[in-house]
């Protein structure tokens, strides 16, 4: 069996009186698209933020390619190839597409001046690789629609050449067309070998591109399933009435069904 690109074991995280994550296990295989679902406050975003180092875990292990890690901030996990795309995209609306893609790490001349021609050229290359629909690297980001702003955020993420991309509620504010395009982009990234986690309430989207779906409930595992061997109905049942005691992993569920 291949080593998961990310594995988390026994993750505990408490915010004051709330046990946000209780003994959560998680794994992500190279090139896999994993849907992470659950009701509000199930701990989906918290688990991902523990993974990137945005939050510090109270207990448990985070392994990248089998090596234990202790990321103190998202910058450190970025160095190991993990990128998170936030719900609000984290873009600077007053700056253009090219500058946003390389926000804070623009190519420089003499270490001091921003090398604009090189920046725009590299921005075009990144956008080309993504096959997205931003028509000019000179457009101001605030003049773009939500879907295109997201494309810029994705372009920035892939410019770091990540192995793993986490999408936090990527389709929440997108039109039907933009959602379709995003799912195509995710499939394209998968072809390029990028593992992805998609946090979403929209099961339809996950069933369209995902390989596996994992359900959290009140900070605990209630099971995961292979998309090819499950249905939206079964996943909904897990979300509503799953318990940690009855949780089956995708492989266990597959064996039981056989």
């Amino acid at each position: 069996m291949t080593t998961p690109i990310i594995e988390m074991r026994g993750i505990m995280k408490r915010f004051g009186a709330v046990q946000a994550l209780n003994n959560v296990n998680f794994h992500l295989m190279p090139g896999e698209i994993l849907g992470l679902v659950g009701d509000n406050s199930a701990g989906k975003s918290t688990l991902m933020k523990v993974m990137t180092g945005a939050y510090q875990r109270d207990a448990g292990e985070v392994l990248v390619n089998g090596e234990e890690t202790h990321f103190r901030s998202p910058h450190e996990s970025r160095d190991r190839g993990i990128e998170m795309i936030y719900q609000d995209f984290a873009l600077c609306g007053n700056m253009d597409v090219g500058q946003n893609i390389f926000l804070g790490r623009w190519p420089r001349r003499f270490g001091l001046f921003v090398d604009r021609p090189k920046m725009y050229e590299e921005a075009r290359q990144v956008l080309g690789r993504l096959k997205v629909d931003v028509n000019s690297v000179f457009q101001k980001v605030e003049s773009l629609s939500g879907g295109r702003q997201q494309s810029v955020a994705i372009a920035r993420a892939i410019s770091f050449e990540p192995k793993v991309i986490i999408f936090d509620e990527p389709t929440a504010n997108l039109s039907v067309m933009a959602t379709e395009r995003l799912l195509e982009t995710m499939a394209e990234l998968k072809r390029q070998g990028v593992a992805q986690v998609i946090i979403s309430h929209r099961l339809t989207d996950i069933f369209e591109v995902g390989d596996r779906i994992m359900v959290l409930k009140r900070g605990e595992n209630v099971g995961d399933r292979y998309i090819a061997h499950t249905s939206e109905k079964e996943v909904l049942e897990l979300i509503v009435s799953g318990t940690p005691d009855t949780a089956l992993t995708a492989d266990e569920a597959l064996k039981q069904a056989a």
């Binding site: 600077c92 007053n94 804070g104 790490r105 921003v114």
Partner: peptide
């Protein structure tokens, strides 16, 4: 308009959280 510092100033004004996330 031409130095990284200047672009940082604009990035901060545009979206401080984004600026911090990208390592500024």
């Amino acid at each position: 308009h031409h130095t990284a510092f200047g672009r940082h100033v604009f990035a901060l004004g545009g979206n401080e959280k984004a600026a911090a996330l990208t390592g500024i």
